[in-house]
Amino acid sequence: MKKKVLFTIILAVVFITATLAQNKESEKNMVSGIRAGWHYATLVKDGAEPYSADPLNSFYVGFFNENKIAPMFHFGKGLEYFQNGLSYTGGGERILHTVSVPLYLKLKIGPVFGLGGIAGNFKVSEKFSAGDYEISPTEGDKSNWFDAPVFLGAGVKIFFVSVEARYHWGLIEVRNGLKSQYLQVGAAVSF
């Protein structure tokens, strides 16, 4: 557990350092900012939620950096925090505290854009609650520490504010045959 937290902190420092250490020439073609919004997550098996599960409503927050690679194309990267998992209909939740590193290509036509990419998701911690009891998962009950979802999204940017929606499909089994899927709807501010 301590190794995963240390790895996540190192990853965050490398990302922020790489973002800030841009030369003057590349600054003209670079946009950085923060993004945050609503995060609607679940775990699915063969495209369907388990019988006793409901989606988990949460939030996401993060930083991003985009570089223009052609007149309408941008390459972006980011660092985000969110809570993945699901709620159980009988009460209780399984929450995976996650740090994500998305990489994406963005096609921008006027104020409208579409984007697609892949992310590396690193589980920082996990919490399971049943009713009023909070239980630390045992070794055999823990979810995997890594996921690699692909995503598609769209949005609109007016001046320095963007409104966007992205849907993610997990490619790696998170636990017991379940894969993550989640929707993010939010805003971003560029600077």
Results as ranks from 00 to 15, higher is better:
Val61Arg: 00
Ser136Phe: 09
Glu66Cys: 01
Gly62His: 01
Glu139Cys: 04
Phe113Ala: 03
Gly78Arg: 00
Asp54Gln: 13
Val99Ala: 04
Glu164Thr: 05
Val163Asp: 03
Ser58Met: 08
Gly78Lys: 00
Phe151Cys: 02
Asp147Arg: 01
Glu126Tyr: 04
Phe73Gln: 06
Thr138Met: 10
Phe159Asp: 13
Phe128Ser: 07
Leu56Lys: 03
Phe82Arg: 04
Val163Trp: 10
Leu86Glu: 03
Thr98Gln: 04
Gly153Asp: 00
Phe128Ala: 07
Gly114Ala: 15
Phe122Asn: 11
Gly37Asn: 02
Phe73Glu: 07
Leu56Gly: 01
Glu66Phe: 01
Asn57Trp: 07
Leu56Trp: 04
Pro102Glu: 01
Pro55Thr: 12
Ile118Glu: 02
Leu152Ile: 15
Leu79Ser: 08
Val163Leu: 14
Gly140His: 11
Glu80Arg: 04
Ser58Lys: 07
Arg166Asn: 03
Phe146His: 09
Gly92Tyr: 00
Ser143Lys: 03
Asn67Val: 14
His97Asn: 15
Ser162Phe: 00
Ala154Leu: 12
Phe113Val: 07
Tyr81His: 11
Lys142Thr: 12
Glu139Lys: 12
Gly91Gln: 06
Ile109Glu: 09
Glu80Trp: 01
Glu126Asn: 09
Asp132Ser: 15
Asn121Gly: 05
Ala70Trp: 14
Ser129Val: 08
Tyr51Phe: 12
Lys123Pro: 04
Phe146Gly: 06
Leu86His: 06
Thr89Asn: 14
Gly131Phe: 06
Gly140Ser: 15
Ile118Thr: 11
Ala53Asn: 13
Gly37Glu: 01
Pro111Val: 09
Phe82Glu: 03
Asp141Gly: 05
Ser87Ile: 05
Tyr51Thr: 13
Phe160Trp: 08
Phe151Gly: 01
Pro71Ser: 14
Tyr88Asn: 06
Leu96Asp: 03
Lys157Trp: 03
Ala48Asp: 13
Lys157Met: 10
Ala154Gln: 07
Pro71Ala: 11
Arg166Glu: 01
Ser143Thr: 12
Ile135Thr: 12
Pro149Asp: 02
Lys142Asp: 04
Gly110Trp: 05
Pro55Met: 10
Tyr88Leu: 15
Gly116Leu: 07
Glu134Phe: 09
Thr42Cys: 06
Asn144Cys: 05
Gly153Ile: 00
Asp54Gly: 11
Pro55Trp: 10
Lys142Gly: 05
Gln83Gly: 11
Asn65Gln: 15
Gly47Ile: 08
Glu93Cys: 07
Val99Leu: 15
Val44Leu: 12
Ala41Val: 03
Leu152Tyr: 05
Glu93Met: 11
Asp46Ala: 12
Lys123Trp: 05
Pro111Met: 09
Leu79Lys: 02
Thr138Ala: 14
Glu49Cys: 09
Leu43Tyr: 00
Phe73Thr: 09
Phe151Leu: 02
Pro50His: 09
Phe59Lys: 08
Glu126Leu: 06
Thr42Pro: 00
Val99His: 03
Tyr88Arg: 12
Ile69Lys: 05
Val156Glu: 06
Gly114His: 04
Phe151Ser: 00
Leu86Asn: 02
Gly120Asn: 10
Phe59Met: 10
His39Tyr: 11
Glu139Met: 08
Val112Phe: 15
Glu164Asp: 14
Lys142Ser: 09
Lys127Gln: 13
Val44Gln: 15
His74Ala: 03
Val44Ala: 12
Asp46Gln: 13
Asn84Trp: 06
Leu115Lys: 02
Ala148Lys: 07
Val124Glu: 04
Asp46Cys: 07
Gly155Pro: 02
Val156Trp: 06
Asp46Met: 07
